[in-house]
Design a protein around this nucleic acid. Structure first.
Lengths: 262, 262
DNA sequence: CAGTGGTCTAGACCACCAA
DNA sequence: TGGTGGTCTAGACCACTGC
C-alpha cells in the first residue's frame, strides 16, 4: 500500500502534491486519526471498550500490527487503556484510581490527598455571565459570549486548601447548575463526561507565587501575608479545543505541588 | 526462546521459581536492561552513537524487532535519541535545543528563556561541608558525609530571577570548584556529564509558595513581602540513585512555571 | 475453552543521510 | 550507493480474563 492510498473506504488523503514536502504520513498515523474520530464523535464513550485489534484491522484493511501501533500511541497519550485479556477501553475520569488526574497537589506526608479522608467540596458560587476579553481568548470564544463561572473551595481534613475559579463555555455546558455540582460526588471532569459528553484529555498549567486578596484570604482562612500557589489551567478536549479555564489558589503550608520530570 | 532462557552469553535470569508470581519478563525488557548496563558503565557516552539495531540484534541473538522495542522505550524515557538515517545516540544535556531540560520557568511573553539574551550565571558560593540529616536523606548518604554546596543566581535581561542552592555528593563530584563552575559556559548538567561522568536522567520536584528570608530577598533584589516559588528538586542518575538536591527560589512577576499535563 | 491483548520473529520495502 | 532507522505484513505462540 503506497503513500497516496487511503484506508479502506474512508477517504483520508496522505499526500499533498502542492506542498514542498510531500508530507508523508505512515499508515498507523492514519489509523490513529480514524480511531480519534470515533472517540471525538462519541461513538465510543468513556469507560466503554472499543473493537478488538483484529476487528479494527479487518475494518481498516491493515494488519493487526499496524492497528496495534496506532493504539499504542493513543494509550500512551492516556486516551485509551489496554487491559490484557479483556480489551481496550476509552479512558475516563470516573475511576477511583485516577481520581485527581490533573491535580498535582499532595500532602507533605502521606502521599495521597485522600489519606486524610475524602475531600470536602463546597460550591461557593455558580453563575452565567459574558466572557471578558482574557477569558474569551483562553477559551477561544468571542468577548461577550456566554460562559459559566464556578467558584469552589476544596478542604482536606477540614482545612480549606484549594480555592478555584472556573470558566466554561456556555454552549457545551448548557444546563449546568450549582445544584447539579453540589449534588454530584466525584471528580468534576467525570460529571462533564457523563452529563455533557465533554472529555478533558490534556491541560496546560502556569504556576506562580502570589499573595491572596481579601476575598481569597477569607475563603481560605489565611491572613493576607500567606503566600499561595497560583495555578492557571487550560484544559482541552480531543481536538485540542480549550474547554475550561481554571484559576486555582493552593495553600502550601502542608501540601506541595509535585512534578515528575523526565 | 522460552521464559527461563537467558540472552546470548549474558546470564540474566528472568524467572524465579520461589516467587509466588513467576515474574515473567519479556525479552525486550531484558535487552533494555542490557543496554541500560552499557549506559551506566559509561561504555556508551552521552552524545555518542550506540551500535545499530541489526548489530545489537546479532549480539544479543534476538530479532531486530525485539531490539527495536527495547530502544523505543529507552528513547521515550529520553535516555536515547533516534535519528533516522544516522543512528541511535545517547541523550545528553549538552545540546542547545534542550538547554534547560529540567528548568520549567518561562517568560510570560516570549516563550523562551533566552529570548531576552543568554542567562547570566553568578556563582555566589561553593564550599565543601558535611551533610545535615535532611540533605543526607535526600542524597541517600549518611549524616556527616562530605557534600558540596553551591549557591548561584541566574539573571535574565539583567534581572536576578532564580536563586539556587545545590548539594552534590562529595564522592562523585570530587574536584568540582567554584572556578570550574564560573568558567564553564553551558548547562551545569552538561559539565557534570563531561567532567564527572554523571548524567541526570530524571528528577522530582516539590513546589511551594514562600516568602524570602533576608538573604534571599537581598540576592534576588526583592522586598521581603514578594512571594517566591520554592522548587525543591532531586535529580537522579541511571540507577535511580539521587545525585543532586537543588532548592530553587523563582521570581514569578514576569515568569511562570509551565507544566503540561497529559 | 474461546477471545483478548502481549511478545517474538523474519522478511520486504521505504525514507533519510552521508560519503 | 550503502547503511541507518521507520513502516508494514503475516504468522506463531504466550499470558490473562471470563464463561
Amino acid at each position: 500500500m503506497n503513500n497516496t492510498s487511503s484506508v479502506a473506504d474512508n477517504s483520508f488523503p496522505v499526500a499533498d502534491a502542492t506542498a514542498p514536502t510531500p508530507a508523508f504520513s505512515p499508515l498507523y498515523q492514519q489509523i490513529k486519526g480514524l480511531i480519534l474520530q470515533n472517540l471525538q464523535s462519541g461513538e465510543w464513550k468513556p469507560g466503554e471498550s472499543i473493537p478488538s485489534e483484529m476487528e479494527l484491522a479487518a475494518r481498516y484493511r491493515v494488519s493487526q500490527g499496524t492497528v496495534r501501533k496506532a493504539i499504542d500511541e493513543l494509550a500512551s497519550d492516556n486516551l485509551l487503556i489496554r487491559r490484557q485479556g479483556k480489551g481496550t477501553f476509552v479512558a475516563t475520569h470516573a475511576e477511583h484510581h485516577v481520581q485527581y488526574r490533573f491535580l498535582k497537589l499532595v500532602p507533605d506526608r502521606g502521599g495521597d490527598l485522600d489519606t486524610e479522608g475524602p475531600a470536602q467540596r463546597d460550591i461557593v458560587d455558580c453563575k452565567r455571565l459574558r466572557a471578558s476579553a482574557d477569558i474569551a481568548r483562553a477559551l477561544a470564544l468571542k468577548t461577550g459570549d456566554a460562559v459559566l463561572q464556578v467558584r469552589r473551595v476544596l478542604s482536606f481534613a477540614g482545612i480549606p486548601t484549594i480555592l478555584e475559579d472556573l470558566w466554561l463555555p456556555g454552549g457545551p455546558f448548557k444546563g449546568l447548575t450549582a445544584e447539579r455540582l453540589t449534588d454530584y460526588h466525584g471528580p468534576m471532569y467525570a460529571l462533564f463526561e457523563t452529563e455533557f459528553g465533554v472529555r478533558m484529555v490534556r491541560a496546560d498549567e502556569k504556576i506562580r507565587a502570589v499573595l491572596p486578596d481579601a476575598t481569597q484570604s477569607q475563603l481560605l482562612k489565611v491572613d493576607g501575608g500567606t503566600p499561595l500557589l497560583s495555578v492557571e489551567r487550560i484544559a482541552y478536549t480531543y481536538n485540542d479545543s480549550p474547554m475550561e479555564l481554571r484559576r486555582g489558589f493552593y495553600r502550601t503550608e502542608n501540601h506541595h505541588y509535585h512534578n515528575a520530570l523526565n
